[in-house]
């Protein structure tokens, strides 16, 4: 391997190590970097709904675990603020 390629390879590996260390610091730990790449990155491009578009209707389950309702049943008379999330 020529000196040029050794330096190139070394630089790339060095940059990757620095990037990984930086991400680990930002995310909290190396394990979180894996979580970031595995679970979060695939979702970063999502979010295709824009202002002015029709709000999709979806069927939801009520907290009682049995009755269901449509999200759009809650719209019409007043603005509806929708908060999506989970517990963790």
């Amino acid at each position: 391997m020529s000196r040029f390629w050794k330096w190139t390879l070394g630089s790339v590996v060095g940059l990757l190590v620095i990037a990984f260390a930086g991400l680990s610091f930002m995310a909290g730990s190396p394990k979180d970097v894996y979580g970031l790449v595995r679970y979060a990155l695939p979702h970063m491009h999502r979010g295709k709904l824009h202002v002015g578009e029709d709000a999709p209707d979806v069927k939801l389950l009520a907290l009682d675990g049995s009755s269901r309702f449509h999200l759009r049943e809650r719209t019409g008379s007043r603005p509806l603020v929708v908060i999506f999330g989970s517990y963790t």
């Binding site: 979060a40 979702h43 999502r46 979010g47 295709k48 709904l49 709000a55 999709p56 979806v58 719209t75 603005p79 509806l80 603020v81 929708v82 908060i83 999506f84 999330g85 989970s86």
Partner: peptide, 11 residues
């Protein structure tokens, strides 16, 4: 709604 992990909308 591309909801995960959390997102807000007003309709």
């Amino acid at each position: 709604y591309s909801a995960w992990p959390e997102r807000l909308y007003v309709i």
